[in-house]
Design a protein around this nucleic acid. Structure first.
Lengths: 196, 196
DNA sequence: TGCAAATAATACTAATCAGTATCTTTTATG
DNA sequence: CATAAAAGATACTGATTAGTATTATTTGCA
């Protein structure tokens, strides 16, 4: 990787970390260039403005990461009752890039930015829709394979699972403890069993 | 109500509106005093600082409102399958103080402030715990009344329902549409029926 | 090697932020 | 009515913000 490309990637990754912890609007460009040791001239060479950088963080850092941990594990799954549970369990408890205290980066950014910035809404919608579709598709596969009741609505399940995941992430932030994750996962397990 | 008490209440209510729409940190005191037509001297007479005002918004505006719409409808309920559904339905679709685009005020503030401000965490935890307890208690009542299976874990249900509600609120913000609420409510209905 | 383009560095601006110091007006009570 | 306290008004501060203008350096390539 060339030096310039490296500078750009450094900005994106460090910015992601700062936004994850402090929120987007509370993450100033001055702090970003201080932590990255990149000058303001370099920053504005690589990005048109702050929002341009924020959008790049979504598309080039968050999107690939979510694909890896949420979508890939569900593709070609014909046993969604187990695979969805495992995916959510992994997302909550086994992901080294997320911390209980700071919740889910996608959830955080959606909540903060979607009502006040249409461009953020769009890139986040694309990301979130793909997550929903992955869950939906796995449920459809399960229905075909007979591991899920035929009268289960796959879209409803997708929204229900994603909503639950986002919501319990917020509890985790509030209590700063993973205890609630275990409580949630037990009930998620019951719920998913009920789809059989 | 005296003039001073009225000034204070005006600040709290308008601040709530601004925080609900723009977030806490993005709501400046200058904007608050501009929209309330209250001077900065008056603001700092009634509140020690911005956080003091923010905490008062939680305790004196959000807490009573949440008690009214979430806790009261569940108290003395022995038919939680229906009453929890109705409560969530009302919260999502029939509450005049909330808008799809801006989500749930408690959820918003929790997400924004709990990781970075311990004092906010505490007042929000008190509020949220009471909501959870109301759901939990209604489930326990349902178990005693026989309308809910004995092997259902009431705490798990409370976390699951609250998580789902918070999560779908975030979808509503992202899509700026109540369509997803209906999808969610259908699956919530199925889930609650499964508790019988 | 020389030179143009890519990349980075520095210093600045105008706006906005939370908070303070000081002053004036209103209110309640003797 | 007099007076003290409550309540509100005004003007300011130093810090921080996103962004810009200008200059300097590094890089690839002829």
């Amino acid at each position: 990787m060339g030096k310039a490309a490296n500078t750009r990637l450094t900005i994106l990754q460090k910015s992601f970390d700062l936004i994850y912890v402090n929120g987007y609007q509370a993450t100033s460009i001055d702090v970003i260039i201080a932590t990255t040791q990149v000058t303001k001239g370099a920053f504005y060479y690589h990005f048109k403005n702050k929002d341009d950088m924020g959008m790049a963080v979504v598309n080039e850092v968050m999107y690939p990461a979510m694909t890896e941990v949420l979508i890939k594990p569900l593709i070609n799954s014909a046993d969604p009752v187990n695979d969805i549970y495992k995916m959510v369990h992994g997302l909550l408890l086994d992901n080294p890039h997320m911390q209980v205290k700071y919740g889910c980066p996608v959830n955080n950014l959606t909540q903060e930015m979607s009502p006040i910035n249409e461009a953020f809404s769009q890139v986040l919608t694309r990301l979130v829709n793909e997550c929903n579709e992955a869950i939906m598709q796995s449920v459809e596969n399960g229905k075909k394979a007979g591991s899920i009741r035929a009268n289960v609505d796959a879209w409803q399940v997708a929204y229900f699972v994603m909503s639950g995941y986002w919501g319990i992430r917020n509890f985790g932030k509030l209590f700063n403890s993973a205890d609630c994750y275990h409580t949630f996962l037990k009930e998620l397990h019951s719920y998913l069993q009920g789809l059989k």
